[in-house]
Design a protein around this nucleic acid. Sequence first.
DNA 1: ACCACATCGTAGCAACGCTAGACATCCTGC
DNA 2: GCAGGATGTCTAGCGTTGCTACGATGTGGT
Lengths: 191, 191
Amino acid sequence: MSAISERRERERAQRHQLIITAARELAEAEGWEAVTTRRLAERVEYSQPVLYSHFDGKDAIMRAVALEGFAELADRLRRVRLASTEPSRALHAVGRAYLDFAAEQPALYQAMFELPTDVKFAHAETPASLRAGFDEFVSCFDPDDPRRELLAEVTWSALHGIAALAKSGRIPPGGQAERLDLIVTRIAGTP
Amino acid sequence: MSAISERRERERAQRHQLIITAARELAEAEGWEAVTTRRLAERVEYSQPVLYSHFDGKDAIMRAVALEGFAELADRLRRVRLASTEPSRALHAVGRAYLDFAAEQPALYQAMFELPTDVKFAHAETPASLRAGFDEFVSCFDPDDPRRELLAEVTWSALHGIAALAKSGRIPPGGQAERLDLIVTRIAGTP
DNA sequence: ACCACATCGTAGCAACGCTAGACATCCTGC
DNA sequence: GCAGGATGTCTAGCGTTGCTACGATGTGGT
């Protein structure tokens, strides 16, 4: 009984992850509008109702994908920040890593930051990985500066702005490096 | 024949605008996901196929709403900029007007800047009203500065970032004024 | 007055998210 | 070892979506 139900639980967890990965791959390959419950079910080789035994619905699946993305992004930003020898260049490196993340995985980024979500961001029940990503920006500023939370917010928002507008073609996709330079030098520079 | 077909054409144009207005109001009241072709048809008191004799589909209707929004935004920004007596404060005023526009009409803003679109932004066939809105930002900077296009791009992007993230609850909706201050002083301030 | 044409509504299609109930399969207790 | 119960999966279907083919209606020109 114990060993068997453990195996079942293991299989169930694997399938849970399989659904998330399949949704993410499908979204990245053909966009979120192509991620239907039918296609997703076919892809994981189960019937539709199985999806609903793991998630409350399509939105919950997208939320799970987004959460996975938050963890990966926070990890990536952290690594880049710690690898920066000079603190003054840390923000630049983190910013570039952020833009690269958005450009390399547009569908994932969309699920995280653009699609409507009920994930709470600046609340008590905010997932840790979510706060962790933001904190990487905060850590790039002087701990003694009382406005460093605000500076991090605005830096993040500006990066999100150029990432989102470039992704949808609303500003020319080239020239992101130049925009990043401007943001970093103006915001992180001495006031 | 002439007078009658002219009247028909007039009625047709009125209905065209009626559809756009109805879609916009419905989206603003209940969100874009509530704007279905059936509900929209009922609201304008015609049957569904009539919508398709005016627009290529739902996306085209949303595009028409967005274009109307671009014209209004450009107009609003222009007025605010010209009303600014002191040039150094023009950018601040334009920025606040932009954020107000986004906050007051979230569905319209969403159609303009967040939803997938095939409207070209930085191309030859860019609608005039669209370029006009961007130019209001450009005009806030020194005409002799070779980087003023870049400065306008980044300013606009940063404003879009805080508008979009605040609208979806990803940053606290309060404190936009503080963020605006920071963006304006850091970007428009002397480098 | 009559025909031709344009215009509009009814009805229907495939696909969507989601769910109820039948079916099969496996574990448990005697 | 074997029936009984519980767990898990699939088939089938509901209501709604964007969109369209086709028939009815009514107007305009000759």
